[in-house]
Design a protein around this nucleic acid. Structure first.
Lengths: 199, 199
DNA sequence: GAAAAATCTTGACATTGACAAGATAGGGAT
DNA sequence: ATCCCTATCTTGTCAATGTCAAGATTTTTC
């Protein structure tokens, strides 16, 4: 079933790998045009296929979004995975920083990853990738010290919420700086994570 | 210029108060159908006016969204205002709880209020209302104790991010409960706010 | 090698955003 | 009170989109 082994090779009717190409181009378009402006026909044009071709892989735009969000979680997990070094609180801080950076570089997909309204019924792939990212953070937080499950729940939800909130407010340009010399967003996040992790 | 003094009174050509009615109905539709499904023509239909009528008040959907977001901030501010009682950390906790509740009851508008992509150039009204809400939280946080401005910046950004993150994760159904008997989201938020406020 | 399945294209229709031109009503000037 | 000006609303239109059906082409399977 290998049709296209070279990038430059011309496609002949069957594409061979259209689904993943659509996700890739789709993410670029989402970040460029935003969620409301996204159109499947424009995606088909940019991919060089006919207007109805994407429908054979994604029944509607929501299904494509779901695939983009799943790939977003996969990217995030891949980054977080490299940050596990059993350095306890430092690991958690490094993950928080990576989380913030991911959001800054993939703002629309980041929003999609946590939008229950846009993704009403998450695919199995989406749920798998999302929980993989979750487990990486969970492991780092468990390494902070043994606590009962209820305390663990409080901890991870507080730390994850803090990370997520900083990311959203940074994207919204709503991080407050009364003092012009205030710390960077990354630095503020770092000290807040430490406050929650040690508390 | 008063045309419509009674609700039941039939409209005759001129509506008299179409702009604010559009915002009201628009918010309902946004919460019902989501951001991507929203259409100006459907809004016109539900408001009982012609398809082009809304365009005389909002040049496009984004301008309506901006007005909806501004009204969202106005609602939020009105709620926060009633919670200022100079009880220091209790005020901040009460505001955090109100913030979470607002997000739960207005999920799509809440998302819109912090979406720089959907609202590229915020109107003057939007900025005014947003900073009013911000100032209410800022006052409550200043009441926690005198600190220099840089410390204040760290504090308010950490607490606001925490509130915001809990709200988003709650809406995304991503608040983790390893222990089935774990505390409510509201309770987790409360204790995390205290940890940051006293730290 | 032929049938079946998967993938892509073409063509069509209802809906939408956006605009232009015309219709109606309210408010101010006289 | 009357007339004009302006704001507001309607109708009609066009290109673009989502979505589907039917047909064409390639791959896989038997």
């Amino acid at each position: 079933m290998r049709i296209k082994t070279e990038r430059a090779e011309k496609r002949s009717y069957h594409h061979g790998d259209l689904a993943s190409v659509l996700v890739k181009i789709g993410r670029t378009m989402l970040e460029r045009d935003g969620l409301r402006q996204f159109s499947l026909r424009a995606l088909a044009r940019e991919a060089g296929v006919s207007n109805a071709a994407p429908l054979h892989h994604f029944r509607n735009a929501d299904e494509l979004f779901s695939a983009c969000a799943a790939q977003g979680f996969r990217d995030l997990s891949a980054t977080l995975e490299q940050l596990s070094s059993n350095q306890a609180v430092d690991d958690v801080c490094a993950m928080a920083d990576a989380y913030l950076n991911f959001a800054i570089h993939n703002p629309t997909v980041f929003q999609l990853m946590f939008d229950r309204k846009a993704l009403p019924s998450p695919s199995a792939e989406f749920r798998t990738e999302a929980s993989r990212a979750y487990n990486l953070l969970a492991d780092a937080i468990r390494a902070l010290g043994q606590v009962d499950e209820k305390t663990f729940d409080r901890r991870i939800n507080a730390i994850w919420s803090l990370m997520h909130g900083f990311a959203v407010l940074e994207l919204a340009d709503q991080i407050c700086r009364s003092d012009g010399n205030s710390a960077s967003t990354s630095s503020m996040l770092n000290s807040a994570v430490r406050a929650l992790a040690t508390g």
